[in-house]
């Protein structure tokens, strides 16, 4: 039983090996030890969604997962998704619709929205709201965020966007 754990994982495709404190959350590990500050820390109890990252392909709360638990996992953050271009249409729509205000929630919104547009291509506004309900925007820009996601769903259905 140890308070420091050796972990090996992939972060945005890069292999990473570190010794971490057992109590270190995944999002703090990404931000403080790897310098990936795109994922934000909000409530630290799973309510706000600002820390949302991908673990082995699904979105998870970076504050409710320990770095020690992602040994062997593939982590993707907003930085990796930005670089890959896989959320370029969502990012463009967020800018276009002014769905980015202070930006604090944006990384989490984009990751959750990316999962939504992949998993629920036929989602209507009500379904978008239900899916995005775990992500708070303290600027209250929800209409614009739903507008942006709805626009991307429409584009992707029309075959105009990537994916």
């Amino acid at each position: 039983m140890q308070r420091d754990i050796e972990i090996s994982l992939w972060v945005n495709g890069e292999p990473v090996r570190r010794r971490v404190e057992a109590r270190r959350s995944l999002v703090d590990f990404l931000r403080l030890e790897l310098g990936l500050t795109g994922s934000h820390v909000g409530c630290e109890h799973g309510v706000c969604g600002a820390c949302t990252v991908r673990v082995d392909g699904t979105t998870q709360r970076g504050c409710l997962t320990l770095a020690a638990q992602v040994d062997g996992c593939r982590i993707e953050t907003v930085e990796g998704l930005s670089d890959s271009g896989s959320i370029a249409d969502l990012q463009a729509a967020f800018l276009e619709r002014n769905a980015v205000q202070c930006g604090y929630c944006s990384a989490g919104m984009l990751l959750t929205a990316a999962e939504l547009v992949a998993a629920r291509p036929a989602a209507d506004r009500a379904a978008i709201r239900a899916y995005m309900a775990g992500n708070y925007c303290r600027c209250t820009g929800y209409q614009a965020i739903v507008d942006a996601i709805e626009a991307v769903l429409r584009q992707r259905r029309a075959g105009a966007g990537p994916g």
Binding site: G46, T52, V55, R61, L64, E115, G134, N135
Partner: peptide, 12 residues
């Protein structure tokens, strides 16, 4: 199931 928290929490 859909009422249990949010997708990111149901994933884990």
């Amino acid at each position: 199931m859909p009422h249990i928290a949010h997708p990111a929490i149901r994933n884990r």
